[in-house]
Structures are given as C-alpha cells and as structure tokens.
Nucleic acid binder design. Structure first.
Lengths: 338, 338
DNA sequence: ATCGATCGGGTAATCGATTACCCGAGTTTC
DNA sequence: GAAACTCGGGTAATCGATTACCCGATCGAT
C-alpha cells in the first residue's frame, strides 16, 4: 500500500505542489506538467489518501446514520433511500445499528463523531434514554432525526405524519362498517409507538366507535401472533384491528385465520409502513404507506442546510402518508392497489 | 468542533507528549500529571480525532463490506452477523451496497480503499464482471469473499457448501416420494446461481429421477410467482420444485396454490437460505439453512490472518448447511422444525 | 526602458495524534 | 567518587494532501 503524491511528483520530476495542482485542477499548470503528472499517476496507480485529505480539509465527505436495527425491513428501506439520495452528492454513508439499545447507540455515536463525520442521521431507539447522547451529538455536528425522535425537541426531525396516517386507517375501517376497533402496537418506548396510539385514539374518539383496550408489545411478527391469540381468547372479536406496523399486522392476520376468524369478513386488519412484507403476505395487507423516499430526501436536504450547534429553533417536518387498500380490509370508494 | 490534545496539554500545564502518554497509558507518567491531564480532558470534553490517529498509525480500525443489496434479507442477516462478530474487536464496519451493478461495486471498492480500510469483505455481484475490481482490491488490502465469489480463484472465500445443500434438498423430496423434479433459480450470473444449479443436477442424476428443464430468472419473489405460473401453464406439474432461495420458493408456493395446486400434496417445494421469509410465509417453508453465523465468524477470522497481497494460495472454506423441514414438503424421519 | 501585473512553479506550514530522540535528575555499582 | 543506568519529561519529526506565501520570468503599457 502507499504510493503518495510525493512519489508521483518525483516520478514526474516536479514539486508536490505542482502534482497536487495538476491532479486537482484547482490551479493552472502548463500542459506539459499536467501531462507528465497524469502519466506518472497512472503508471504508479496513485490513489489519493482520503484520510490525509480529511485531516487537512477538516471534512470527511461522510455522514453517519444510526438506526435501531437493519433486520427490520422498514429501516433497511429508509437506509436505501438515504443512500440513493446521497449518491450524487459524493458523500458516503457510515451505517450503524444500535440494536435497540441506548448504550450501544451512544457508543456508536461516539465513534462516528470520533471519525469526524460531516453530519448525522439518526432514528433514536428510545424516546427517553436516547436523549443525552442525541443532544450531545447535535451540539457537535449537524444532526437530523429520521422516523423516530427524542422527547423534548432540541433536534430537527423528519418523519411521517403518524396522526394523519392513523386517521386514514381508522376512517377507512369505519367506512367499511366497523363499529368496534382495537389498536395493536408497541410498548411506548419510541415516539412512533406513542404517536400512533394517540393518533388512533383521537381518530376513533372523533368517529364515536367503541374502542377496546390497546394491545401493546413489540414491533414484531411474534407479538402480532400473540396479540391475535389474545383477541381470540377474549371471546369477542372487534370489527377491526389497526396495527402500528406491518409485521404486527401480518402476525395478527395469521393467528386470527389460524383460529378460524375470517379476514376481512369477521375482522378487518390494517397495517402501517408498507415495506416488503405487505405485498408478500397472503392475503396482501391493507396498510398505510410511509413516504420513505420523500422522508429521506427531506432529511438529506435539511442536513445540508444545518450548521453544527446552530441555535436556530429545531424544525419538525411531518410528511403525509397514503392509504393502500389491499385485501385485509373491506374496500370502499377510495384506495389504491399498490 | 475541535478540542485537540494541544488544548488538553495546555490546560493541564504539560507537553503534548505527556498528555498523550497520560491518556493512552502507553508510557508511565507521574500520578500528578495523570490526574491533571485526566481532569483537563474531562472538563474540555476532549475526544481524540480518529482521522489524525489513522493517518499517523496507518490503520483506520475499519473494515469495508460490499454486498449486492441490503434489501435482500439474506444479505442483511449476514451483515448483522459480521457486525456482531466485529463488535468485540473494536473495528467498525463501513457498509456499502453495489445495487447488483459491477460498476457501482467497483466505485464503492475504490472509495473504501481511498478511505484506507484495514480489510474488505465482499460478496461480488457478478461472477465475471466483478473480477478485475475484486482482484485489484485484494492486491492492496486483505480481502475475503463471503457467499458469492468471482471465477478463477485468486481471492479467499467463505461460504455455504451449495453442493451439499442441494443434495440435502433433492434427497429429502425424493425420500418424500418425488419421481420428477425441477429447479427454480436465477440466471447464472453469480457463483451461487451456478453452484446451486449444478448441485441440483448432480444430486438428481445420482438419484435417477426425472429432471425437467430448469427455470432460471432472478432471486426474487416476483420471479418465483412467474415460475409457478409457468409450471401450471405447462400442464404437467413435477412432484417437487427445489428453489435457489427462499424468496423464489415463497412466490412459487403462492402462485401454485393460487392456481389450485396443493402444496405439499401435489407439489413439494423446498427453499434455500432460511432467513426471515421462510417462517413468515404461510405455510412455513421447508428450506436449507445457511450457517450464517459460522460463515461470518470464519470470514472475520480469516481476514484477521491475511496480509495484503500475500502470495499464499487462496483458501476456500465451504461450511455445511442444514435441512429444515417445515410444511411445504412431506416430512420424513429426519428434519428439525425451526 | 521601466514599472506593474500576471502567470506558474517551488518551499514549507498546516491539520492532530503519536513517538523517536534527547536531556537532566536521581540511583546504583564498583 | 565516578561511570552506568533508570525514570520521566519535553521537542520535534512523522503520516499525506493541500495551499499560503514567495519568487522569478514574461508581457503590456507608458
């Protein structure tokens, strides 16, 4: 390893300054020198050392991203979208998973900051426990929260309008004839978990339908299965179940059908996210689609505008989701097959 | 940004050398100086600059990983396993997706090398087109291929024993009574695609059953659905379909059942990988489980042993997979529910 | 012919952490 | 008592790329 610009300069018989200028084109050199340097660089297989460049320029051309886990298809989708968005700006992405642990998350943020990333995009795993690490990071480098956020504001955020999304889901099942509804979600450790529950409750109250006590566990298929069993055991099924994400919904549909209930005839089920699983499962899931591409684009745009520790008030950008009606709910006038 | 070790040294009233030694503990300092430096560092919130350290030490504590795409659950699973494996060695992972394009892949390798990663783990997207970029990278830095590999050897490889895996699948369906079999896989652009087809053909020939022409498309659900329709349209179904991965298998099961065929009564279906989808789908898929954890551990171990450009002959490590019988094939004596 | 501007090339400082090297004080040993 | 050694501290070189700064040559204008 290691042909440096000094080697190139020597081989071309010029100074390092000329070599650097010839290669970067940031100042004119004679065509003759340009030619000699280009040839020398090609022959030696010179490749500039990004580490040295980063040290000198005080910028790494890198942004860090921290998500709870890449096993979750929602996060991989959003990572891909961010990557696509970054592609043409020449910045690379350093991706880390916090594994749903605030401790791991804090460590990951530390190493990203030590590596002097130019910015951070994070989906904090815990609405409370993630606060200090996220605020500290935001003080040192431009930072945008994507999807999940920490309580108390203090850092910019881009995400879906959960309130609006849940309203779409609730209004849809009610339009399909549901008179009793229940929410199947996650324990309230993330902003998404909280907002989706409250969005559900508000929409249901406004519609005046009967609301059963919410079922709160994890954002997983397994919890969906368990929640479905719980509903069956309770002896009385609601007309509709609105879920906090698609994995819960898929598990729920599976255990409901396994227990003899018909979906959507006996119970309508609606998910949230619309990534991967929704079309995969059988029957295809009605769900609320998160505008992942727009969210990623907006997050990258916002990050570009930010300066570290800028005392400008934190922005919150909520993008409207869309309802996608498939086959686990009764179709009504609206809705698009996706 | 930017309290440096000079700031710490000044605040503690000592030289940078002492500050560095006090912080790293790599040479003794008096307890008094150690104390003063520690206090100054804490008060200033000093965090060493990893970029400067990397330049000086000629090592970044980082390894790069390039996979075709993180949308594919098989690759995210393997990435997670590698990450876990790296965790306790203090090295970070720079993850890149080649998006199944040799051009993107080559670019990604270039930037990883420019950033002076200490090593590379790659699953080359194309068995032929990826050759030059991978060999070039292997010459400059320790490199291990994981899962997919390039033709012609020349770089170390760790993966599953495809031959053995396909034999497990074929023998299993034959033990279940199949007399005619077909392979549903991908066009032969990757090593996995080729080895699985040839493994299938060898096992089927050895067993002496009827073999229909293979169905070759993509490693996707959509292709599985299409392949299933193709079989139905052909008018005569084989007794068993062995698939090159789980996504194809899931799509296949779905379209076969939609077309009125019973699985496994009319047709047995076996997948490959056993990540994510296999248990999710309904009915749960019989499949061949890739030993992802072992593969990741082995790749990291091997990487640690390698020196860049080492002329030692390339190693190939194939780890045996395991058959997991669920409900898309007829159970026989062996097999474990997973 | 001379002055100023312009152009292009080279020398060396810079980014931040580590460490080779040097030096003085204190200790040991014959 | 002097030579040899140890211990701990400081100065400055180092990693590689970029660029501020300086300098000589050339050109145009007066």
């Amino acid at each position: 390893m290691g042909v440096t610009i000094h080697d190139v300069a020597r081989a071309a018989g010029v100074s390092v300054a000329s070599a650097s200028r010839a290669l970067s084109g940031r100042r004119k050199v004679t065509p003759e020198i340009a030619e000699r340097v280009a040839r020398a660089a090609a022959e030696l297989g010179y490749q500039p050392n990004a580490v040295a460049k980063a040290l000198r320029d005080q910028t790494t051309g890198t942004i860090g991203m921290v998500v709870p886990g890449i096993g979750n298809p929602f996060f991989t989708t959003i990572v891909e979208a961010v990557e696509r968005e970054l592609q043409n700006s020449g910045t690379d992405l350093l991706l880390c998973a916090s594994q749903y642990s605030p401790q791991v998350e804090a460590r990951r943020l530390e190493t990203l900051l030590a590596r002097r990333v130019d910015g951070l995009i994070i989906s904090p795993c815990d609405i409370e426990a993630s606060v200090p690490a996220v605020l500290d990071a935001a003080r040192r480098v431009p930072l945008v929260q994507l999807d999940r956020y920490i309580e108390g504001g203090g850092a910019d955020w881009v995400g879906v309008d959960d309130e609006a999304g849940l309203a779409l889901a609730v209004d849809h099942v009610i339009a399909g004839g549901a008179r009793s509804v229940v929410f199947a979600g996650s324990r309230l450790v993330s902003s998404s978990a909280r907002l989706r529950l409250s969005g559900f409750e508000r929409a249901a109250a406004r519609a005046g339908v009967e609301v059963l006590p919410p079922l709160l566990g994890e954002f997983t298929l397994e919890w969906g299965i368990e929640a479905g069993r719980g509903l069956l055991d309770a002896g009385r099924l609601p007309d509709a179940v609105v879920c906090a994400n698609d994995e819960i919904a898929v598990g729920l549909v599976r255990s409901l059908r396994f227990g003899g209930a018909r979906v959507p005839e006996d119970v309508a089920v609606v998910g949230f996210d619309d990534v991967g699983h929704a079309t995969m499962c059988d029957p295809p899931l009605s769900t609320v689609r998160q505008p992942v591409e727009e969210m990623a684009a907006e997050a990258v745009r916002l990050l570009g505008q930010l300066k570290a520790g800028d005392p400008r008030p934190a922005q919150r950008i909520a993008i409207a989701p869309r309802l996608v009606v498939r086959q686990t709910s009764r179709p009504v006038a609206a809705g698009v097959e996706g």
